[in-house]
Design a protein around this nucleic acid. Structure first.
Lengths: 104, 104
DNA sequence: GCCTTCTATATCATATTTGATATATTAATA
DNA sequence: TATTAATATATCAAATATGATATAGAAGGC
């Protein structure tokens, strides 16, 4: 795994406190993290073009802080919430599938 | 929404006890349910070709009953677990993206 | 019939994720 | 600079998801 990718993953506190901890991520765990980050980034791009975090939150009965966390790749945010948020921005299953398929 | 799809969704107790309850699903909620069902079905197909539920469970530090629920579209199963299970069967992000993109 | 393997169902204590709230920070603009 | 809008961070009680365990069915071979 290359340095750039590692830094990208480590950036937001993704489970790691040290490099060796990081290396203990199985391949599957690491892919899962990348899927979350990809959804997170895409959500932010979509949402910024359309509305504020507060507006999106109200559309999906969530809260602005939760949207902020979702867009910043916070580890406490589930894939479920990321997908619900994408859908609330008008994303289709095709859009979402494409984001996930684009990982790696 | 057509009858066939409704029956498919209602089949496993998806939030509904009555038709009117069902109709209270927003478009987004309904898409989310369909994404889960699509992942669920695909997981079952993949897993059956490769291993038992017990084997898959141990590969991903889960339990056989949880895999059974995942494959049967139980409402208590998160998208996260479905994707972790797919990955444990060797599915790639492309495989997963394709399943989601295939919804609707 | 019995035995074995696989899958489904039920229960439950624990862990994670949630929206809400308060508040801090940042950005833009008058 | 002061004001405002937008976003980020912190905390927390409630809701949801979790793996574990026990056990029941189902399907097949003997």
């Amino acid at each position: 795994m290359d340095q750039a990718k590692r830094e990208r993953l480590v950036a937001k506190g993704w489970k790691v406190g040290s490099v060796s901890d990081f290396l203990d991520l199985t391949a599957e765990e690491s892919i899962l993290v990348e899927i979350k980050l990809a959804l997170s980034q895409n959500l932010k791009e979509r949402r910024q073009k359309l509305m504020t975090q507060t507006e999106l939150a109200s559309k999906m009965s969530s809260s602005q802080p939760r949207i902020a966390k979702a867009e910043n790749g916070d580890t406490s945010v589930s894939i479920e919430l990321l997908i619900r948020a994408m859908l609330a921005t008008g994303a289709t299953p095709q859009d979402i599938g494409q984001v996930i398929a684009g990982v790696r």
